[in-house]
């Protein structure tokens, strides 16, 4: 007769071997920067979702050009002041980065595009082309305006243009989150900012599968950042021409050269900036810049991939 100990051990062993491993996946969706941010963590038991949410909320208020918040000098404050405004160091840093990005992109990224962006936002909402005189006036304002910085986090707009950091904020904040997660040794995550700025850790050690809408293909990636710009996000059509939320600060035009651009690199801030900038450039120019900066790029036109970095392997 088998001993009772052996039978007990067998039972315990069976229980151990057949117990279902429960996944400890955490998800949350929040709504900063006039869009959504979904956060997914895979088997990361020590994620402080509230702290991450608070980090994002803080930047949301600081970078809001349309609303004021008591006790906070934010983008709205700067836009509505003719004098120097003392801001939080976080906002000061983003603004400085915005000016650097303007230089790096030869002006295709311009943080003083606020009024022009708003004009086209309203146009998209009303599905009506804006007045060309208004566009010309706003381009002139942009050209005649500048951002001035002083010590002690003081910032001032010279001229009539307004600030809008829509082209950099999501990527910048995701960069912040990426650094934060690294300090906490959190590696298994996917954070998606409005489907245009994405940071990836890994999925339990494995790659994530990233599908590309409209082309029936995708690629695998992990531990990187992805920036995407697409006319599909917000647009309207007039006489067969597609007008989107991507505005050329030189011409005031909202007609992009491409349907979608995907940029992959470790730097989430640059991905946000360049995915937008590349929508305004010819493919040859995109390739030159991408090679110089070690970006991997996919360009899509008329629902076809017209350029893809050779290191990106697609699956169908």
């Amino acid at each position: 007769m088998y001993s009772k100990q052996r039978i007990l051990m067998s039972f315990l062993l069976t229980l151990f071997l057949t117990s279902c491993g429960s996944s400890n996946n955490i998800s949350k969706t929040i709504y900063p920067f006039s869009t959504y941010l979904t956060m997914n963590f895979y088997n990361e038991g020590d994620v402080d979702i509230d702290e991450i949410t608070n980090i994002v909320d803080e930047y949301d208020k600081l970078c809001d050009p349309y609303n004021s918040y008591e006790g906070i000098n934010n983008l709205y404050t700067i836009n509505n002041s003719s004098d120097f405004v003392k801001v939080d160091a976080k906002l000061y840093d983003i603004l400085k980065m915005g000016i650097d990005a303007q230089a790096k992109t030869n002006g295709y990224f311009n943080p003083l595009i606020g009024n022009l962006s708003l004009t086209w936002k309203e146009a998209i909402e009303n599905k009506t082309l804006p007045n060309e005189d208004v566009i010309s006036k706003e381009i002139l304002e942009i050209n005649n305006s500048s951002l001035e910085f002083k010590d002690d986090y003081m910032v001032k707009i010279n001229g009539d243009a307004n600030l809008d950091l829509g082209g950099i904020t999501k990527g910048y904040v995701l960069s912040i989150l990426k650094d934060y997660l690294a300090t906490k040794n959190i590696t298994k995550y996917l954070i998606n900012g409005g489907n245009s700025s994405i940071i990836l850790g890994n999925k339990n050690g494995e790659d994530f599968k990233i599908g590309i809408n409209n082309v029936g293909a995708g690629f695998k990636a992990k531990e990187t950042s992805i920036g995407t710009s697409s006319v599909d996000e917000q647009y309207f059509e007039v006489d067969g021409v597609t007008y989107s939320h991507i505005i050329n600060p030189f011409t005031g035009s909202a007609v992009s050269k491409h349907e979608t651009v995907v940029v992959i690199n470790d730097n989430a801030t640059l991905m946000d900036i360049y995915s937008t900038v590349f929508m305004m450039l010819d493919t040859e120019e995109i390739i030159k810049i991408a090679e110089k900066n070690s970006f991997k790029v996919i360009v899509i036109d008329n629902k076809q991939i017209t350029y893809k970095d050779s290191e990106i392997e697609l699956y169908v």
Binding site: T35, K203, K209, G218, T228
Partner: peptide, 29 residues
């Protein structure tokens, strides 16, 4: 009727997304 193309209502804070295990994608951009 496309996976991972979200419908978002910012005002009411509702987020709707379709997923499918047929394509197995974690996200569609």
């Amino acid at each position: 009727s496309i996976t991972n193309k979200p419908i978002v209502c910012l005002y009411n804070k509702v987020y709707i997304v379709l997923i499918s295990n047929a394509d197995g994608n974690d996200i569609n951009i």
